[in-house]
Simulated scan of single mutants.
Amino acid sequence: MRQILLDTETTGLRVEDGNRILEIAAVEMINRKLSAPERHFHMYINPERDSEEGALNVHGLTTEFLADKPKFADIARQFLDFVAGAEIIIHNAPFDVGYLDMELGRLGLGKFRDHVANVIDTLAMAKEFFPGKRNNLDALCDRYEIDRSNRVLHGALIDCELLAEVYLAMTRGQDSLLIDFAGGDDAAGGAGGRRQRSGSLRIDAPSAEELAAHQAYLDELDKIVKGSCLWRTLEPKSDTVESAA
């Protein structure tokens, strides 16, 4: 799976005020492993305007530094070729996607989502995992004990690298779905043939003792509700007959 961690820096907070992108970084990750640095995309961009004071204090990229850098129109095709068809991971995706939509729209290149497989918003994920807590990138780095000592000013490239670590930490539980069980009798259906393969997942069929314990538990539930518990109504008839045999 090809995923790309993406971040932008802009001249201000509101795209509606005519602000522009002045830095863009896209870090490639293949099968949950970062690619070599030469496979990343990183560009400083001449935004053709000054940064707002608040934004300048955040990223530190002055008008003078950006004056000789390419304009977005000069790098748009290269950028779209890099992200084409990938799954994009962004922290606070509506912000970055809004700016990308604006820049692409100015060039008649459609919407950002038209060019990629889909967009994952790690801020939305974090709000589900940690409701009511601070969920900016700094807070998540601290929560997952990720070193951010090099992040003095916000920069798109370093933010992407930190976001990669945060995303992997947030989705750590998914690793169990990606384990390759190939090799050995245990993976191929050893231990009495109870273990079966379904893609890369493993299904353990219940033993006779486990089935009997399950039925005994349901019997107790039936007594409590003085009838048939909900599970009985959902349980396939064949399973009930086989387990009772």
Rank of each mutant, 00 (worst) to 15 (best):
I89V: 15
E28P: 01
L13T: 01
K223H: 12
V58T: 12
D186I: 15
G190L: 14
G199T: 01
H91E: 01
P37E: 15
S207R: 11
F112P: 08
M170Y: 13
N92I: 12
F181K: 02
S149D: 14
S149Y: 10
L153F: 12
V116K: 03
L140E: 07
A84W: 08
T240H: 08
Q215C: 00
R134H: 00
I120S: 14
P131T: 01
G132Q: 05
I158A: 04
S51V: 03
L163M: 14
K33D: 13
F112Q: 08
A164L: 09
R2N: 05
N135R: 01
E52Q: 06
D219T: 05
I90A: 11
A55I: 05
P131I: 00
R202F: 10
L6V: 10
T171V: 01
G85K: 06
Q3S: 07
E103K: 00
S228V: 00
L137R: 09
A164K: 14
A213W: 14
E161M: 06
D7H: 11
K127S: 10
V116W: 07
V58Y: 09
V97E: 00
L157Q: 13
T10I: 02
L6W: 15
P206Q: 05
E145S: 11
R14L: 10
E145W: 12
H40E: 11
D138I: 01
E53H: 01
R113L: 09
D186R: 15
N31S: 04
C141Q: 11
P70V: 02
A126H: 12
G110Q: 02
S228P: 03
Y44F: 15
G155L: 08
R143A: 06
A55F: 01
